[in-house]
């Protein structure tokens, strides 16, 4: 398993504010990695340093084997960036825009195929101004992937989407991941991280406070479960044993049985609460 992104001791300070304070991170080639964290936790700063937009104060950073602080255009051709707030090129059509961006890359994909992949074939001749918010984000993704990148950064890609548009967008991300593209995703939505990510890191106060698969993050898999049934409830580390006892007691089906582990959201709120 090779490493796409390797970060050690990353720090960045804006005046008196320590935005990132000694952050370590490893992202493997081909994985979907979600970075979670409240606003102001250093999430955007970290990602923008990885993207080559910002200079770091200290630490070791390698993205696809290159220091993004010394980014070359050869490196930029291997990295796709899907920005959070872009309102540009409103008077161009989708096709014109994607075709134009394809020219920047040495080995770009066919623009029409990219437009089809993001599901905008029917809107290819429409001006970007006329698109819905969700369709506009699809154009952003098209521009981010038209250069055949090995690594794609997605910054809060589904903010403001309706539930159906989010599901469709998730399918798009999954199909990218299925092609072997490494994906780094920042998001506010925990269900999004859970649905898409192989691994998740939580940033709070400029540090990683937890890292793991969505199922095991912050001890989620081993946290005590709450078992509820018709006549009572219990918090237990051994729910299976409890259920067996209950099954004997009720002689078969346990009325109103429910076993709940903490949700990713519970874990997340605990984690960032502890960091405060």
């Amino acid at each position: 398993m090779t490493t796409a992104i390797h970060v050690r001791g990353l720090t960045k300070r804006y005046g008196a504010v320590q935005a990132v304070g000694g952050l370590d991170l490893d992202i493997r080639t081909g994985e979907v990695f979600a970075i979670l964290g409240p606003n102001g936790a250093g999430k955007s700063t970290t990602v923008e340093i990885l993207e080559g937009y910002r200079k770091r104060d200290a630490g070791e950073v390698s993205v696809l084997g290159v220091d993004p602080g010394q980014a070359t255009s050869a490196w930029r051709a291997r990295v796709g960036i899907v920005l959070q707030t872009a309102n540009d090129a409103a008077e161009l059509t989708v096709r014109e825009t994607v075709r134009h961006f394809a020219r920047y890359y040495p080995d770009s994909k066919d623009p029409d195929e990219v437009i089809a992949k993001v599901g905008l074939t029917e809107r290819a001749g429409a001006r970007i101004r006329q698109l819905s918010g969700g369709q506009r984000r699809r154009v952003d993704v098209a521009l981010g992937i038209v250069g055949r990148p090995e690594l794609v950064f997605l910054d809060e890609p589904t903010t403001g989407f309706d539930p159906e548009a989010r599901r469709q967008f998730w399918d798009l991300i999954r199909s990218l991941a299925a092609e072997g593209t490494t994906i780094v995703l920042t998001t506010h939505y925990l269900d999004e991280a859970e649905a898409l990510a192989d691994r998740v890191a939580v940033i709070a106060k400029g540090r990683i406070v937890a890292e793991g698969t969505p199922r095991t993050l912050g001890g989620r898999a081993t946290a005590s479960a709450r078992v509820t049934w018709a006549d009572g409830y219990a918090e237990t580390d051994t729910p299976t044993a409890l259920v067996r006892t209950l099954a004997d007691k009720y002689d078969g089906e346990i009325p109103g049985l429910q076993i709940v582990r903490p949700s990713l959201e519970d874990i997340y709120l605990d984690l960032i609460g502890d960091a405060e």
Binding site: G52, R76, I81, A86, D88
Partner: peptide, 17 residues
Amino acid sequence: IDRDDGTLKRLAGTPMP
């Protein structure tokens, strides 16, 4: 306007010379 609406930032993230 290009600087404000994200055009420049987007271009800076591509290999465009």
